[in-house]
């Protein structure tokens, strides 16, 4: 169908439809906005956790202490064995002298306590181990523990797995959010459009009886639905910008070790996701609603 001349007409009609049912339009925009901001915030929390978990992994917080019966040379030779373990991305050998220095640095002005220990170093040789994939963290820790010559391993297995668990829960929660609120949004949009079509059923009947195609009748409602949902996306984006960071920061401010993800780092992906989701909601909402009155 040749509709290139009709876009202005469709647009005008669509905008008019929005104002005819002002309250319903307002309600559906509000709900879609809420849906997007809630989901967006949960996703931001997830990004924060993922960042923190990755951080923990890269800190190299697996410390593997070498059996004291091994000579310094043999202890240094373990590096090759450790590097060969699956999922190990890096290994740093901290011999006893370096260990002492690091300890002194940590103690700062109290380091004098350690004076004189250089000649009778009580520390053990030690390895710091980094992993590639934090997901296999526990297996890697186990493999390091089982390496011959390693006496003892310190790893924040619990902290990492807790965070992972939290992230998984948030993942499920945000998915549920998206699906539930998405459904509510589609329902609301389709009801708004249904109301608009019901209001205009006589008009639609006349259009069809004088030869309008379904596409022609549908176009203004389709545009109405798109305008509503994209408006919601833009409002949600602005809201997320203003309050999103504040929410995440206040929720996590007590947990100083967290690497808080900032909305500003994800502006484009967020805008894309919001508008994309809104478009899907808009299209589904309008498709669900207008079939009924087209049968003339």
């Amino acid at each position: 169908m040749n509709n290139r001349h009709n876009f202005a007409y469709f647009f005008r009609e669509g905008v008019q439809g929005i104002f005819t049912h002002g309250f319903m339009s307002f309600a559906s925009v509000s709900v879609i906005t809420t849906c997007l901001v809630l989901t967006g915030t949960v996703v931001l929390l997830m990004l924060t956790l993922t960042g923190t978990i990755d951080e923990l992994g890269s800190v190299g917080d697996i410390r593997a202490y070498v059996d004291e019966t091994l000579s310094d040379e043999n202890a240094a030779a373990l590096e090759t064995t450790l590097r060969a373990i699956d999922n190990v991305s890096g290994v740093d050998f901290i011999d006893r002298a370096r260990g002492l220095n690091e300890l002194k640095e940590q103690l700062g002005e109290n380091s004098t306590l350690l004076d004189g220990l250089e000649n009778d170093n009580p520390l053990r040789n030690c390895y710091r181990v980094w992993v590639t994939d934090i997901g296999d963290y526990q297996d890697t820790v186990l493999a390091v523990e089982n390496t011959r010559g390693i006496a003892q391993v310190y790893a924040s297995v619990d902290a990492v797995s807790e965070l992972q668990r939290l992230r998984n829960i948030l993942g499920v929660a945000s998915l549920t959010f998206v699906i539930m609120l998405g459904m509510v949004s589609i329902f609301l949009i389709s009801n708004t459009i249904k109301l608009a079509t019901f209001d205009r059923r006589e008009e639609i009947g006349i259009m069809k009886i004088i030869g309008a195609t379904d596409g022609f009748v549908r176009a203004p409602f389709f545009i109405e639905s798109l305008i509503l949902s994209v408006t919601a996306a833009v409002i949600a984006f602005v809201l997320q910008w203003i309050i999103g960071d504040a929410i995440v920061e206040s929720a996590l401010s007590s947990l100083t070790f967290m690497k808080v993800a900032s909305f500003r780092d994800f502006l484009l992906p967020y805008l894309g996701a919001f508008v994309g989701t809104a478009l899907i909601i808009g299209v589904l909402g309008s498709l669900l609603s207008i079939r009924k009155f087209l049968r003339v």
Binding site: M1, N2, N3, N6, G211
Partner: peptide, 18 residues
């Protein structure tokens, strides 16, 4: 169509055919 003007009512038939 009651909501449209006389002009629009007639023009409408032409919009339909593009």
């Amino acid at each position: 169509i009651e909501k449209k003007t006389v002009y629009e009512n007639v023009a409408f038939a032409m919009r339909i055919v593009g």
